[in-house]
């Protein structure tokens, strides 16, 4: 059996009596596309930051690519990870061309003694997000969606083995959103890259991902493709006032079986 890309065991974060993340265990194989859904404040971004090595968990263990993530291994392990976070500068000030922004994602960008020109890799990453015609444009002049795609290219340019995305579709229109998910699916299938993506809209992602983890402090359910998410999981995550609609047979967690529909519909 191959070593999993990510292996999290019994991870907790936050005060013991009111944890933000509680006893999370998760395993991810190469080429797997995992969606994490959950309400606001569920700890989704915190979990992603912990996997990205930005925050240290209070207890538990993380292995990345079969090696333990510590303060000392962090530097090496993170070179194989692409990360797209949510806290963006909405008025970028630095004068930069798009291709310079993408170049920043290269693993050896900041080491002058190892500087190689990677213009092919940059062009390829920009092509993947349909931005190659804008390679020389000023980053400050772009729209929010275009900037988001440039940032995605920056995360992809180092050809990561693991890609972490925190609500990547927030600035994108629905066509771009669909294209993004298709691109991620294709990268997982073709290159064996694994993806962990936080999204709030399960309907939009469920036909693309391999599995969905429902997170609210704990992982309430981890549904593989074609599997249903029981109603009590939805209620545990979002409370009793949700209204569950089944709309697509391909969609994870919302198959239109009769037994899966809520008996007592209430509106919040």
């Amino acid at each position: 059996m191959t070593t999993p890309v990510v292996q999290i065991s019994h991870l907790s974060f936050g005060p013991v009596n009111k944890p933000i993340l509680d006893n999370i265990s998760l395993e991810l194989e190469a080429g797997h596309f995992l969606g994490i859904v959950g309400p606001n404040g569920a700890g989704k971004s915190t979990l992603l930051n912990i996997i990205a090595g930005l925050t240290a968990p209070h207890s538990g263990h993380i292995d990345l690519f079969g090696r333990c993530l510590t303060r000392f291994s962090r530097h090496k392990l993170l070179r194989q990870i692409g990360f797209l976070h949510q806290l963006h500068d909405h008025a970028p000030r630095l004068p930069m061309r798009i291709r310079d922004v993408v170049a920043m994602g290269l693993a050896d960008y900041a080491t002058p003694w190892r500087r190689v020109v990677h213009s092919d890799a940059i062009r390829e990453a920009l092509k993947r997000v349909d931005m190659d015609h804008l390679a020389n444009a000023d980053f400050r002049q772009l729209s929010g969606g275009q900037r988001q795609r440039a940032r995605l290219a920056r995360a992809l340019v180092r050809k990561p083995r693991l890609l972490l995305l925190d609500e990547p579709s927030a600035a994108l229109d629905s066509v771009r959103q669909e294209k993004l998910f298709q691109l991620l699916r294709k990268l997982c299938d073709d290159t064996g890259m694994s993806v962990i993506m936080v999204e709030h809209d399960i309907a939009a992602i469920s036909s693309h991902v391999d599995s969905v983890a429902c997170l609210n402090r704990k992982i309430h359910h981890h549904a593989m493709k074609g599997e249903d998410i029981p109603n009590n999981v939805w209620r545990a995550m979002y409370g009793d006032h949700i209204h569950i609609m089944a709309h697509d047979a391909r969609c994870i967690g919302c198959s239109p079986d009769e037994h899966n529909l809520p008996q007592d519909r209430q509106h919040g």
Partner: peptide, 15 residues
């Protein structure tokens, strides 16, 4: 420069 552009990503890429 990459810290000035985006400190979180710089941190996450191992700087």
């Amino acid at each position: 420069w990459s810290i000035a552009f985006d400190a979180v990503t710089a941190d996450a890429s191992g700087l």
